[in-house]
Design a binder for these strands. Structure first.
Lengths: 186, 186
DNA sequence: GTCTATATCAAGATAGAC
DNA sequence: GTCTATCTTGATATAGAC
């Protein structure tokens, strides 16, 4: 990476994300991306030989962004046992639902196409767990908090979360309490 | 419902589930179902005028089964504050991954097709929360445990759970402990 | 109530010009 | 590196026979 051709690639991914946001994952087609980007289908296929490669690129970008977002949150938090898990919760539940939706869309599209393509995420999750427990947070506690965070984000991304604003705050507060409580109990 | 034509409908849904299990959600087509069921495409379309209606039927069945499974577990458990949540955790994480996968597939296919179709699940989840907290379990605690359960199931259904058998047991044990601890703290 | 046959259409992918 | 044109496939839907 680093060539100037990257910009075209990146621009195409931008447009693909737009399409997903506006039309939904099921309507992400080369045609739609071509129309919106000004690039022809053939042009697109130079950069992404098939749809799978485009979806992978979208997923990769989402992973990168998620990690960046988490690191940013982390840098704003004081040191301590719960620093990593709190960064995960807060960055995972940030209020930019649109952005989350894009990642989820690539995710679902890949899951439908070939679940095997999600394998890299397993490795990713493993690394996350390592980081979360690095400072002494109990493994089980870290896992439960991380899983609940991801479950809530999933529900919200799919607009099927039944929780109102106040209930959501209470849930987030509970996650925080569980992260800290563990520290004391140690 | 209750007509004898129901059996044909049910059989078609059975086959559709089979296809999803064997080929993946992305390859669920009328053609594939027709080939496997002996019923022609035209015959299928009599029962399900379009793919969306088939997916909805699959999702409905999955919801029914999940509820049944939870109620069954519930009946095996002693009374107590944590009875409902424990039934949810245990039935949600039961080891029949194949069955879970079918529900998830219909779920993802609907999410890709039109996320709005998942709206009924919001109501469903609301009802679940009501049941979980009926016996005095704190709302936030119930939500966190339920969300973590669902997050773990999602990861497992997509074969992206990084946890081995022993780690999984520890996570489940932690969920149980959180359900009971809450009781004591009350 | 279930089938055959067929129409329509859109998507992914290819080949080769510029 | 990007384009046009074209090929192939397969999914959805319709009409009407049995």
């Amino acid at each position: 990476m680093g060539r100037h051709s990257d910009s075209a690639r990146e621009r195409i991914i931008d447009v693909a994300e737009q399409v997903v946001i506006e039309l939904g994952a099921g309507h992400l087609t080369f045609d739609a991306v071509a129309a919106k980007s000004g690039v022809s289908r053939g042009g697109l296929l130079y950069h992404f030989p098939n749809k799978e490669s485009l979806l992978k690129a979208m997923l990769d970008r989402h992973i990168e962004r998620s990690t960046e977002s988490r690191m940013k949150k982390r840098s704003e938090l004081p040191e301590g046992v719960e620093r990593e898990i709190v960064a995960h919760v807060l960055s995972g539940l940030e209020r930019d639902v649109r952005r989350q939706r894009v990642g989820a869309a690539a995710f679902f599209a890949l899951a439908a196409h070939d679940p095997g393509l999600l394998a890299p995420l397993k490795e990713q999750y493993r690394k996350l767990m390592d980081q979360l427990t690095r400072n002494g947070l109990r493994f089980e506690r870290a896992a439960v908090i991380a899983l609940a965070t991801d479950g809530l984000r999933l529900a919200e991304v799919l607009s099927m979360s039944p929780f109102d604003k106040e209930e959501r705050s209470r849930i987030v507060a509970e996650l925080m309490a569980l992260a800290k409580e563990n520290k004391r109990a140690k």
